[in-house]
Design a protein around this nucleic acid. Structure first.
Lengths: 136, 136
DNA sequence: TATAATTCCTATCGGTTTACTAGGATTAAA
DNA sequence: TTTAATCCTAGTAAACCGATAGGAATTATA
């Protein structure tokens, strides 16, 4: 399951991508427009800022804005920050690899084999989809 | 994340597919060979039996056995029973559909759009992969 | 027929994660 | 100085997950 965190994060990014100009948009505006709990969204945007997707401006008429153009924001990066691993099991994860405790031989494991296929396909979609692709 | 339930279930099915003949295999044998908690595996096999994947024989020299040949056991069906929805969000699920509370227009939702692509790709893999494919 | 070996079934439980909330500190425009 | 915003740390209720407990029912076999 995709977490609400990721879902809301993508929605917020999309909302920002749709804005004309690059003026800071306050959390409240996004939260109301996208029906997202204000405080929860706050923590998500904070995390997107700390990871280089968003810039922010404090104080009156402040808010959040995209740091890159939507074409350059790839879903694979967004997913890894908000959701974590793309892979369904740690033993096939590229960025979050962990060995299975129970599995003596990965190469012989049916689950491993199957999940590599799924990972490769999903990865290609996330790599080839940008924020711009989602706003059109 | 793939649940341990699904992971163990697939491993158990694979183990049974590799057996010569179709004699019942006791839980204990599978559990030891695949390093799976005995009691947990018990509940998983029970569920696979109730959903028509496995047959069972009670009492001495009893156990579980496949009801179909491995070629005819498609991963898409196993996944739906053990893991639930294939889709990452309920609003793009074919078998477990639910409308998003927050989303007024699915067709205009970026997450919806993206997750349909992921679902279609994953679905195709699970549909085209049988238990036999995983044992080779 | 007694025994051992097995599945069947229901219930429970501790730990982790998720989604969300609280509250105040800090910053900046008007 | 006021107002409107982000920043930051903490907390929390509910759900879910992985595993466990214990005994009833069933069946082969000595």
């Amino acid at each position: 399951m995709l977490s609400k965190k990721t879902k809301y994060g993508i929605k917020a990014l999309t909302f920002l991508a749709k804005q004309e100009g690059n003026a800071p948009v306050p959390i409240e505006t996004i939260s109301k427009s996208e029906n997202i709990s204000r405080k929860f969204l706050e923590s998500i945007l904070l995390s997107l800022r700390k990871n280089g997707f968003l810039g922010s401006k404090k104080g009156k008429s402040g808010g959040y804005y995209l740091l890159k153009s939507p074409e350059d924001i790839k879903m694979v990066d967004v997913m890894r920050i908000l959701e974590g691993p793309i892979a369904m099991v740690p033993c096939v994860s590229l960025n979050f690899y962990e060995k299975c405790a129970d599995c003596p031989d990965e190469a012989a494991c049916a689950v491993h084999l199957l999940m590599i296929k799924v990972r490769d396909n999903t990865l290609e979609i996330f790599r080839n989809t940008s924020l711009a692709d989602l706003t059109h």
